[in-house]
Structures are given as structure tokens and as C-alpha cells.
Design a protein around this nucleic acid. Structure first.
Lengths: 240, 240
DNA sequence: TAGTTAGGTGAATGATACTCATTTTAAAAA
DNA sequence: TTTTTAAAATGAGTATCATTCACCTAACTA
């Protein structure tokens, strides 16, 4: 046992000590991230991680409850960065659709810049039911709620159809992002992720049907035209 | 070693033997599916599977190379059913969009009816890189190609925008389906999956923007209106 | 200096995937 | 029917980890 013990009651040189401890934890996390990313959770061994971090196997258990806890600890810091980054990048963005566009871009960009991490998160962690009781998972939920909020906001603004089930739309958007990322990581196409952002946004925003067989125009314009004519008009988009 | 051995050169009562062997393999697969679904791959033990199948541990290795091979063998039969079912249900369906709608529905419906299997496939198998060299994975790829084909077909028919990257759209659609399914399985909401199909299709087909702030109408109608006026008209949908 | 404790260690333990020498079973031959 | 033969099945034994714990080291206090 080491890290769990109560620190000195004095305040003297304690900081230095704590810093070293914190450094060691970070070191283990860094090495573990590399090893897990390379070998996968099952094939990675504690002894290999210990060796590469140049510490004893037992020391790992001073900082983490077990191998799985070590794995689940990897996303914590990154998720915090992700979340604060999202909030930052949304500042000043007006309108739900623009926010969604930004989120899609930021999300793919984040994955593109955190390859090792993405492999671990998507392949080893996210679908493990025990991950749900994790701090990092709570952060993911928070993000997930944010997306729903933005969708609801969009409904109120009149920018998103009100008959849409918000959580379902969120799942569709996040699922699409994730799947594209996984395919990218398996096929080694991660560097092009960000380029897919605008296209992906467009699928959801405008749909996949062409505008050539139907014309969409602002309501005001439409009403003006209609007024100056006296004609029967279709209100719904052409369906096949 | 057992199952690998060459059968007798004669033809006599061989069938009975082979059948029993096949049955045993199926039995192991059935029990393994249950155990893996309940405990997850890591927590499930070979000894538990052997016990519940009422056979010796060693026998499992007569039929499967190792634990992972056993896991990866589970999707084979189901994927075959899935694929033939898809082809069947697409018979007589005209138009790429209708086919995509059908695929989304069939996919979600299949998952809804194969709960145990879905949990295993999505949580333990699909994102494992070694799964890529599997027979079952080849079937998934086949399905994946089918979707791309349909999208391309839709472009030629003029039903889908030609500026869309087909594999990207495929990934978005399949990713959305998968994510919704996973959320459903974690939250125990699988029974409502099929209900989400039409909504999901609609996200992609028509987009999420309301028709109230913009009006879409057939090109002929639009041209007729335009002709009888003399006005400047927008050709693109309103963006926020 | 002596005492205290955070911090670190690695051999020992137990669990489990996988192997293999042996036994059992049942088809084919005699 | 009895004998022969190879397929099937077995489970004790092996190797490989994850995890524990009794002990060590060094820094800080008094």
C-alpha cells in the first residue's frame, strides 16, 4: 500500500512528495495507454506495463484498484479536456444547427488528434457495462445531455422539426460519428476524419435527397410568390 | 482431438455420427452464447461453459481452436440468416430510398429479435481487430457493400444527391443503427427498436429541419410559378 | 541519532486458458 | 457375435497471468 495512506499532518515539503506521486500515476497512465492501444486490454499484461514504466508490478496496485480500474482511469482527464473544449468552442455560436455542426466537427477533430486514446475508448472501454459506474462515463453523459439540450433549443427556435425524438436524434448523430471514427481507426484513415464533418452535418441538416427534383426556398419568398399568383401549392417535400 | 479427424471412407451409418458431432458443436455454441451474454467475454470461463453444456472442458477444444474462436463462431450462422433475410425482404422493393428504409427497419427488427446475440456482437466482438479475419466479418462486409450499392443506385435514379460520399453515408446510417441498439440494450429498451426505424430513416431522407421555415416543392411547380413572375429565386435550402 | 511512515518491491498465491496422455464409444471387419 | 480400429471425450497437469502481502528503503521529524 502506498498512495492510499494518509499524508503527513504537516505542510512542509509535502508538496514535492505529492507531486512525485501524481507524476507516477500519470506515468503509469501514459504507459498503460500505449500498451493497451497496441495490444488491446486482454493481451496487455500488468508486468509489461510495469516493466515499461520501470516500476514494480505491485506499485501499479498502489495507484489503481486493478487492471480494469487502470483501463477506466485513462478517459478521465481526456474527457475533461474534451468537455471544456466543447464548451469553449461553442461560445458565441448562435443557433442550434450551427452548434450541432460545431460539435460534429469538434468531436471528429478531437478523435483525429487522440488516436491512441480513441482506439482504447471505442474498442475496449465504451461498451463495457461496468464502465457505466465510472466518473468518465458521467462526463460522457453530461456531453450527451448537452447535445439533447441543443436539439431542444433548436426546436424552440424553429430550426429543428418538433416531431423529432431528441434522444433518438442525438444517438443517431453520435453513433454516426463513432462508427466513422472506428472505421477510420481500423482502416488507418483517422487523418481524414475532420474532412467528413461538414458532409456528415449535411446528412442530418438537409437530408440526402437532391434539391434538383425539388426546390426549397425560404417561407417569406414562397409566400410572396404565392400571393402574386393564385395557385395550389405543395407544402411537403416530394417523396419517392 | 476429435472433430478434425477424417471420417470413414465408407458411407454406411456415417451420417448419424456426423449429425451428433454437429449437434454438439451447436450445443456448445448455444451455451456459450448464453454465458457470454450474461457475463461478458472475460468473466465467462471455459469451465462454466463446459459445466452448463455437461461436457468436459477439453471437448470444447475439439470443436474450437480457443476461447476467442468460440466467441467469433457465434455470429456465423446468425449473419447468414441476417443476410439472406435482407435479400428476401428487399425483393420487389423499388427505389433506393425505399430500400434504405427497409434495411433500417429490418436491421433494427433483427436486433430486437436477437437480444443475447446483439449484446455479444456489439459489446465483445465487432470492435475486436482480430474479428476482421473471420468468416462472419466477411458477411458483414458483404452487407456493408450492399448498402453502398443501393446508395449508388439511388444516385443514378436521381433520388440521392450525387455529391454524397457513399461509404460515408453508409457509415452514418449503420453507425446510427448500432448506437441506438447499444443504448437500447444497455438501458433495456430493445423492444422499442423497431419503432425508431421510420424516424431514423426520416432523419436521413428529409433532414431534421422543419418544412415550416422553408418550403420544398416539385421543380415543375416551381418553374411554373417562376415563369409567371419575374423574380429572383433562391436555389438552395435556407441555412441558419 | 532514533523513530516514523510514505513509498516501493517482488516472491507467493490463486484463477483460468489450454494441452495431452489416456479412456470410452461405436462403427466396421472378421 | 466378437474383434478391431479410430473417432470422441475426458480431466489431470502446465503455463500464464492478475492480484496480494510481508518486507524493504529513504525521507522527514524530534
Amino acid at each position: 500500500m502506498a498512495a492510499k495512506r494518509r499524508p503527513f499532518p504537516s505542510v512542509g515539503q509535502k508538496k514535492k512528495r505529492t507531486l512525485q506521486t501524481e507524476n507516477k500515476k500519470q506515468l503509469i497512465l501514459k504507459v498503460a495507454t500505449e500498451v493497451f492501444a497496441e495490444k488491446g486490454f486482454n493481451e496487455a499484461t500488468i508486468s509489461q506495463i510495469a516493466q515499461e514504466a520501470k516500476i514494480a508490478e505491485g506499485s501499479i496496485y498502489d495507484y489503481f484498484k486493478n487492471k480494469e480500474d487502470l483501463l477506466f482511469s485513462i478517459p478521465e482527464e481526456r474527457m475533461e479536456n474534451f468537455l471544456s473544449g466543447i464548451h469553449e468552442s461553442l461560445e458565441g455560436v448562435k443557433g442550434a444547427l450551427n452548434k450541432i455542426r460545431k460539435i460534429i466537427w469538434y468531436h471528429l477533430n478531437f478523435y483525429e488528434k487522440n488516436k491512441d486514446y480513441v482506439v482504447i475508448l471505442l474498442q475496449n472501454i465504451q461498451k463495457n457495462p461496468r464502465f457505466n459506474s465510472t466518473r468518465a462515463y458521467r462526463l460522457i453523459r453530461e456531453f450527451s445531455k448537452l447535445v439533447v439540450q441543443i436539439i431542444e433549443e433548436g426546436k424552440k427556435e424553429g430550426l429543428i422539426r418538433t416531431d423529432i425524438d431528441s434522444p433518438l436524434l442525438r444517438d443517431a448523430i453520435l453513433g454516426a460519428i463513432e462508427h466513422i471514427t472506428i472505421r477510420g481507426s481500423i482502416l488507418g484513415r483517422l487523418p481524414t476524419l475532420t474532412g467528413a464533418a461538414e458532409t456528415l452535418y449535411d446528412f442530418f441538416a438537409s437530408g440526402i435527397q437532391p434539391q434538383s427534383s425539388a426546390v426549397t426556398l425560404p417561407l417569406r419568398e414562397f409566400l410572396r410568390m404565392k400571393e402574386s399568383m393564385g395557385k395550389r401549392i405543395y407544402g411537403k417535400p416530394a417523396k419517392t
